[in-house]
Amino acid sequence: MSEITPETVRHLASLARILVTDEEVEKLAKELDVIVESVATVKGAVSADTPATSHPIPMSNVYREDVVKPSLSQQEALSNAPDQADGKFKVNAILDEE
């Protein structure tokens, strides 16, 4: 059974902010379906009480002193900005005009 439908791909692509053409959606759905079917074997490998590992080397309580360090200058901060105005990063409107 196909788990990854074109609809799923469209939804995921929108969550991930990637524009996809209809062609790409079809292709990705097929590819991902094969991959997902293959990696899904992990489900059968573990049980409810198997602990999860998120960090390979166990460590805890790593903290920084609350002491101010030099920041970038405004010019440095904006040096790679695709667009800027008034010392700020400039972006297109957030909402569509109604």
């Binding site: 400039k90 972006v91 109604e98």
Partner: peptide, 9 residues
């Protein structure tokens, strides 16, 4: 709403 563009600090 209706903004032409936005700025981020």
């Amino acid at each position: 709403q209706g903004a032409e563009y936005s700025l981020v600090d």
